[in-house]
Amino acid sequence: MQRHPMTKEGADALQVELNKLKKEDRPAITEAIATAREHGDLKENAEYHAAREQQGMIEARIKQIEAILSNIQIIDVTKLNPNGKVVFGATVTVLNIDTDEELTYKIVGNEEADLKHNKISVNSPIARAMIGKSEGDEIVVEAPKGNIDYEIIQVQYI
């Protein structure tokens, strides 16, 4: 079985979500189902059907998180000694050579990737181009609209 890399921060966030689902959301939906049942005929009881649907989504998410957590390898970049190289978990600032735009990304596992928070999957084209490189190196990222040239400005292990 292949284990998937995840940052400690990502694993902790999943554990918090799992605890909330089990300790808050699951009991609340059970109560909502019981209340809706009291309203009588279940065939035409929209509240009951909505609550049952929500219960199904909660249970599915619980199973999904438990499966993810059972198959991860937590990598704490603060405990590695990558000698200035870009590695999984590193926070990397790059400069788009054509536009002079600076971007900062944290390289994370697939399950925790979130572009809105500048967290990119280790399997993304830009992360794959950065892995193993150091500050000052130039990389080329193949993008749908053509290649993009970047210079690695800073590599942090935070």
Rank of each mutant, 00 (worst) to 15 (best):
E38W: 08
Y105Q: 02
N118S: 09
G136N: 06
Y150S: 02
V94S: 06
A113Q: 06
T104V: 07
L14T: 04
V108P: 02
V94N: 07
K85A: 12
H49D: 01
G10W: 00
D76N: 14
R61D: 08
A46F: 08
R52C: 09
D114I: 04
M1E: 14
E38F: 11
Q55P: 00
G132M: 08
E17W: 01
T91R: 12
G84L: 12
Q2K: 15
N96I: 08
I74R: 01
V141R: 13
D137F: 03
D12K: 04
K116E: 12
N147V: 12
P27C: 07
N83Q: 15
K119C: 05
T93R: 15
M6Q: 13
H117Y: 13
V140N: 06
N83W: 08
V86I: 07
Q64I: 02
L21R: 05
A90H: 01
K85H: 13
A113T: 02
G109I: 07
E112F: 04
K8I: 13
A67E: 15
Y48I: 05
V16Q: 14
L42I: 14
I97F: 03
I158S: 13
D12H: 05
G132A: 06
N71S: 10
I107F: 05
V155A: 03
N110D: 15
R128P: 00
I126S: 10
N118Y: 03
E135N: 04
D149S: 12
G56M: 08
E24A: 09
L14I: 03
N45I: 02
R37D: 12
T78R: 12
L42Q: 14
F88L: 00
Q2F: 13
E101V: 14
K145G: 01
V94D: 05
H39E: 14
A32E: 13
N71P: 00
G132T: 06
K63L: 06
K106W: 04
A129P: 03
A28Q: 02
